[in-house]
Design a protein around this nucleic acid. Structure first.
Lengths: 210, 210
DNA sequence: GATACAAGATAGTGATCAGTCGCTATCTAA
DNA sequence: TTAGATAGCGACTGATCACTATCTTGTATC
């Protein structure tokens, strides 16, 4: 039995953190909608009632999980972008940092496709909406900067390209979640990103070849 | 009360068909995992027990639904492709036919993201895998044909581009499912496809401009 | 070491679900 | 007309779920 005896009686803040942690762990294995309060409690070595001392409802737990993910993701993306030498380089670094982040947190695909996120208007969906729109705007901004520096096509529809960028990530996640036996996310990302880049890049002018 | 009194006592085949139909209807509104046998029965004007006379389990129902979707989708795609004047035109027609098909069957996004499809290895996931791989191969074939005719870049990684094509559809579906208040699938598809096409198309040679 | 409070234990409640089963009503074919 | 086949009924099972009310115990503070 691999349950953690986990010495009990944590402070409220630490317990909240641990609930978020084990919830993500369990979601990666079982899928979001199959994680019960009982499962969480067992993974922490407490009883099920204890979970509801720290969160008023399961929805509140998922909301906290989503906020946790946002903070971590944004931090990772910010660091990746800062290392870029130019806007297109930053775009590429962000892309692969995002892919790595997802690969390192297998619960994220499950959350992204969970019923909570796609069902009736929940607070969770509202938060996801905010995240996606802000992310998209950031990408569109990078693409405009790339245009200004002559790195991206002048006629590029930057908002549409930003939508495609995010769609590409989400699509690859969905695809490799279903085809998980035959494909890995990192591998598919590495193969498709160059194709995407072709749509963005300003083609080199003719006189560069001697 | 919008229940259909629906004169009872259908033949087994017709009842199976109707179960598939109402299951898709209900999934579009409630989400896949929230469709109960009771819901199906009520929508048909029979009792819950009657549902299990025609299918041995709920999994079997979802399998039948997926097969139904595959047949319809493949038929629609085949017709769209046949109307294309060249491989790239066929690709574009297939893309928008696929988008229209999904828009006309709102249950499909829910099925695509359902727990059944992403959880433990089910027959449903195997079927989805087959569909996706066959589709991808078909797209890659079209792209190769486009290359042969000088319509697509000679250096295009056609399998990767096919993966991106499918990822683009799935990503847009996922995105517009979450952002359904602010975006429509058809609209986003129309904006992003031209960007994708830029990655595929052979750039016109320089001497075309006077 | 007494006290007070917070964290957890224990034992529920009521609802929902997939699937079962014996029976009945209806259809069809001889 | 009748007999077999079968679609559907209706009541039930056993399991699971989120959430709650009440009691117990650990710990920090004075």
């Amino acid at each position: 039995m691999s349950e953690k005896p986990a010495r009990k009686r944590l402070g409220a803040d630490e317990r909240r953190e641990e609930i978020i942690r084990v919830t993500l762990e369990l979601a990666a294995r079982q899928g979001v909608d199959d994680v019960t309060a009982q499962d969480m409690a067992q993974a922490m070595g407490v009883t099920q009632g204890a979970v509801f001392r720290h969160f008023p409802s399961k929805d509140a737990i998922w909301l906290a999980v989503m906020q946790w993910v946002r903070e971590r993701l944004m931090s990772v993306l910010g660091r990746a972008a800062a290392e870029g030498r130019d806007p297109l380089d930053a775009l590429q670094r962000m892309f692969f940092a995002h892919i790595d982040f997802i690969a390192g947190h297998p619960a994220i695909p499950r959350v992204l496709m969970s019923e909570h996120l796609h069902g009736r208007s929940t607070a969770l969906r509202k938060l996801a909406t905010e995240i996606m729109l802000a992310y998209e705007e950031r990408i569109a901004g990078l693409l405009q900067a790339a245009q200004a520096q002559g790195l991206a096509r002048a006629d590029l529809d930057t908002p549409a390209a930003a939508t495609l960028y995010i769609g590409m990530i989400q699509g690859l996640v969905l695809q490799t979640s279903i085809l998980r036996d035959q494909r890995t996310l990192a591998e598919q990302a590495a193969r498709t990103f160059p194709v995407f880049l072709q749509a963005i890049r300003q083609p080199p002018s003719r006189e560069t070849t001697p």
